Amino acid sequence: MRRMAHSLDLVFSALGDPTRRAILSMLLEDDMAVTDVAEPFEMSLAAISKHLRVLTAAGLIQQERRGRVTWCKLQPDSLRGASIWMQSFGQFEAVELDAFELFLARQLGDGPDAPTGA
C-alpha cells in the first residue's frame, strides 16, 4: 500500500506542472528527441531536462539513447494506478456545479436568497 501511495505521489506531482502536462500531450503523437520536446518552450534545454527527469521518475515517460540523440517515449500504462485511484471516487454522484455555486453564494451572502445578518 505504501509503495502504491509513493507511486501516486510521483505521478500526481509530475502532472501538477503545466509544462510537464504539455510535454505528455506532445508525446501522445509520437516519440520525440529531447531537443524537439524543448523547441516550443521558452526555457533552456537544462530546464526541459529537469522536467523530463521528473516525468521519467514518475514512470510517465521512458528516455532512450539512440546514438547521440536521447528520445522520449510516453508510457501510458503508468497512469493506470492514478486512473484506478480516481475512478474509485466515481461511486459518488457528480455534483451539479450550478447548484453548488448557488448554494455557496447563498451561504456567503453573495447571491439571491442570501441569509441576512442578525
Rank of each mutant, 00 (worst) to 15 (best):
residue 70 T to G: 00
residue 5 A to M: 09
residue 16 G to S: 15
residue 37 V to Y: 03
residue 96 E to I: 08
residue 25 S to W: 01
residue 115 P to K: 12
residue 72 C to R: 01
residue 26 M to N: 07
residue 23 I to H: 03
residue 99 A to E: 15
residue 105 A to V: 01
residue 21 R to M: 10
residue 40 P to I: 07
residue 22 A to T: 03
residue 90 G to A: 14
residue 45 L to S: 14
residue 72 C to Q: 06
residue 95 V to W: 01
residue 118 A to N: 12
residue 96 E to P: 03
residue 117 G to C: 06
residue 70 T to W: 05
residue 2 R to D: 09
residue 59 G to C: 03
residue 42 E to M: 09
residue 71 W to E: 02
residue 21 R to W: 02
residue 19 T to S: 14
residue 36 D to L: 10
residue 67 G to D: 08
residue 62 Q to S: 03
residue 73 K to Q: 15
residue 117 G to L: 15
residue 68 R to Q: 15
residue 64 E to T: 12
residue 42 E to K: 06
residue 72 C to L: 10
residue 58 A to C: 10
residue 24 L to T: 03
residue 40 P to V: 09
residue 110 D to H: 13
residue 78 S to T: 11
residue 45 L to W: 08
residue 97 L to Y: 09
residue 86 M to I: 12
residue 34 V to R: 05
residue 10 L to Y: 00
residue 114 A to M: 08
residue 76 P to W: 02
residue 5 A to S: 09
residue 86 M to T: 12
residue 79 L to P: 03
residue 35 T to L: 08
residue 110 D to G: 13
residue 4 M to I: 11
residue 6 H to E: 14
residue 83 S to T: 10
residue 58 A to Y: 02
residue 70 T to C: 13
residue 69 V to D: 13
residue 75 Q to Y: 00
residue 118 A to C: 11
residue 70 T to D: 11
residue 14 A to C: 10
residue 83 S to E: 12
residue 42 E to R: 10
residue 71 W to Y: 15
residue 105 A to E: 06
residue 65 R to M: 12
residue 24 L to M: 07
residue 84 I to P: 00
residue 13 S to A: 10
residue 12 F to Q: 04
residue 35 T to P: 01
residue 27 L to I: 01
residue 4 M to N: 04
residue 90 G to R: 08
residue 58 A to E: 08
residue 115 P to G: 04
residue 67 G to F: 12
residue 82 A to V: 07
residue 26 M to D: 09
residue 113 D to N: 10
residue 46 A to S: 10
residue 34 V to E: 04
residue 101 E to P: 00
residue 13 S to P: 02
residue 113 D to K: 06
residue 104 L to K: 06
residue 32 M to I: 05
residue 20 R to D: 09
residue 17 D to L: 08
residue 93 E to A: 14
residue 51 H to M: 01
residue 9 D to E: 14
residue 95 V to N: 06
residue 49 S to F: 02
residue 58 A to G: 03
residue 15 L to I: 03
residue 77 D to R: 11
residue 74 L to N: 00
residue 2 R to S: 14
residue 116 T to K: 12
residue 104 L to V: 11
residue 11 V to H: 07
residue 19 T to C: 11
residue 4 M to Y: 13
residue 51 H to G: 07
residue 115 P to F: 09
residue 86 M to W: 09
residue 49 S to M: 05
residue 11 V to T: 15
residue 4 M to P: 00
residue 19 T to F: 12
residue 1 M to H: 12
residue 65 R to T: 14
residue 108 L to S: 06
residue 35 T to A: 11
residue 101 E to A: 11
residue 105 A to Q: 07
residue 88 S to T: 11
residue 26 M to R: 11
residue 44 S to V: 08
residue 80 R to Q: 15
residue 46 A to F: 06
residue 25 S to T: 06
residue 44 S to M: 11
